[in-house]
Design a protein around this nucleic acid. Structure first.
Lengths: 332, 332
DNA sequence: ACAAATCGCGAATATCTATTCCTTCGAAAG
DNA sequence: CTTTCGAAGGAATAGATATTCGCGATTTGT
């Protein structure tokens, strides 16, 4: 692919006519007596070779100020607060967090690590935007909880794990069980399965876990029919404010006792807490009450969140600071 | 059309995603929760507002060295030597000369002037590329010779004059006669027509004339059937080397005596020579022998020519310099 | 020297982008 | 409160661009 001097002149000429004089490629082609296809290729070369330079004034996709405050307040190692898009629909906020969160998360991972994943819509968006060019290799990607519905949804832990393993390079360790089984006994028999136990063992070797944080009001579990609205109402009465891996916890970050606790197939909080790096991935200000507790107790050690969500979380922190004992939180 | 801060952030984001991350507009639209149409508009704004800056490394469409040599050799006021394109077909060379020659010519013109035009394919290309944004107004555009064929071709003097008058703004003065009539008597009766005489009078007020320079070997006149190949052969035997406005001349730039001379309806050489600025527009190295004489005798005072043609003309100049008396030409 | 592989190109086509047209919404005027 | 105007944006579509495919030329390997 060597280009002669006159070839480079040709490229310059094409670039000049197209970008400066804004002729169409067909017009340029006529002028140069080549095909439009060739003009398209010439222009690509022009961009690659720097004959044409396109500079875009920097867009800052993150909000450093909020990141700093969150990191200070909850003593987090890594925080990414993703600036909200102009049009704030749930979907656009999610995909924004996914798009700009993906490279942040990717940079936390190293070749050969054991990575755990749950499901969730925001997490799904993030995984979608993990680029194949960040290939690491040798990962072991482990599913942290069973599947939510009978059918495998786009954002189930299995699907996300599979995609991550494919894109970054690594092996998928799948649980192949539902998230919620009919009884404690049933759960125990599941856990005895060789396949499941092999996965479970990896929980102790895990380097990074990526988890979604669920609220009681807007939950994938209801959408997918695993829990019913009444179930959540009851859990709420018991003090539950959020959910991770299908497990409910209260405002102090303690897991709630309930009929479900023994029927859920997923990593346990004590195991989760031992993982060196647990990254919460979430979007939307309605989640704040679910997020604050797990940050406070260190169940989640890093956070990818949207701008509005971040503000909501900080507001909660401020409130409890003002009236309660100033435990762990400090004003900056 | 005022844009808020968040609107500008939106523009930046769109530009960033499109130009830096090279997402398609549809993908950007999904991410921003707007339509693709809006993204297209945002990107346009981004370019207009300088959020995106596209710089193209300079392409030098002209060859200053050859221009200098031609100007020195023939004492020309204005010379443009247009760099040859990579692929040298007759068509691509012509359109190149037209494209880059057009602004040069336009810059020579002033509002209110009387401009004369002949026909010709290169001149046609040039006129084609005169941009409406260079509107001057008040021009009088005069046809310097009759039409070559029965049908009006793309590159007939009428058509070119009409277009120039339209684009730059001015009135068209058309001859409405054939270029070659059947007899001297016929010619005389044509010249007596009030309409024709009105045009002819303008020849004395003319500020600028744009003329093509024809060779005997490759002539529009043959293509259009005005002259036959035998005619040209005969003219060649009489010493003719070129043609301007349908009039033949020899290597010394003197008009040839011939049966045609009294039958051609076009401006005369003595009138042409009085015009303050006569611009020759030509392309192709085969024309060199026709070009050199008219430059030497000052029938043409400025030149728009392609690179190869320029070299050929200079070669002729060098040759006659070396063996003949060093009249007017100087080595630089 | 000949076959095989590679390259470069343009025609056809798939894909992406710009524009047109129309609807909606909100502000200003009546 | 109603009407009118204009701005803003999306759906449909016209128009432009990128990609695929296959062919012929050129180089490479045997």
């Amino acid at each position: 692919m060597v280009h002669s001097v006159s070839e480079i002149e040709l490229i310059k000429l094409a670039a000049r006519l197209y970008y400066v004089d804004s002729l169409s490629q067909v017009e340029v082609a006529r002028l140069l007596a080549v095909s439009q296809a060739k003009v398209s290729r010439l222009l690509q070369l022009a961009r690659e070779k720097g004959v044409v330079q396109i500079t875009v004034s920097e867009y800052e996709p993150r909000v450093p100020e909020l990141e700093q405050r969150l990191a200070d307040t909850y003593d987090l190692g890594h925080v990414a607060v993703i600036r909200d898009p102009h049009v704030r629909t749930t979907a656009s906020i999610r995909s924004n967090v996914g798009y700009f969160g993906a490279p942040v998360v990717t940079r936390l991972l190293r070749a050969g690590q054991v990575i755990g994943l749950t499901g969730g819509r925001v997490l799904a968006e993030l995984i979608r935007h993990v680029s194949a060019s960040d290939h690491l290799g040798g990962l072991r990607v482990v599913q942290l909880m069973g599947s939510i519905g009978a059918d495998v949804a786009e954002f189930d832990a299995v699907e996300l794990s599979r995609r991550l393993a494919n894109v970054l390079g690594g092996t998928l360790y799948t649980l192949n069980t539902p998230a919620l089984v009919s009884s404690a006994a049933s759960r125990n028999s599941f856990l005895k399965l060789e396949q499941v136990r092999a996965v479970w063992k990896l929980y102790n070797e895990m380097d990074v876990a990526l988890v979604g944080i669920g609220s009681l009001s807007d939950s994938s579990f209801i959408e997918r029919g695993t829990y019913r609205a009444e179930d959540l109402k009851r859990m709420h009465a018991l003090g539950a404010v959020g959910e991770i891996c299908g497990r409910f916890y209260d405002a102090n970050g303690h897991e709630c006792q309930s009929e479900f606790r023994d029927r859920i197939v997923s990593i346990q909080f004590n195991e989760l807490r031992r993982i060196p790096l647990t990254v919460g991935v979430t979007a939307g200000s309605g989640r704040a009450e679910a997020i604050a507790p797990v940050l406070r107790v260190g169940l989640v050690k890093a956070l990818i969140i949207d701008e509005n969500g971040a503000r909501a979380v900080l507001e909660i922190a401020d409130k409890s600071n003002r009236k309660g004992k100033k435990k762990g939180a400090q004003v900056r």
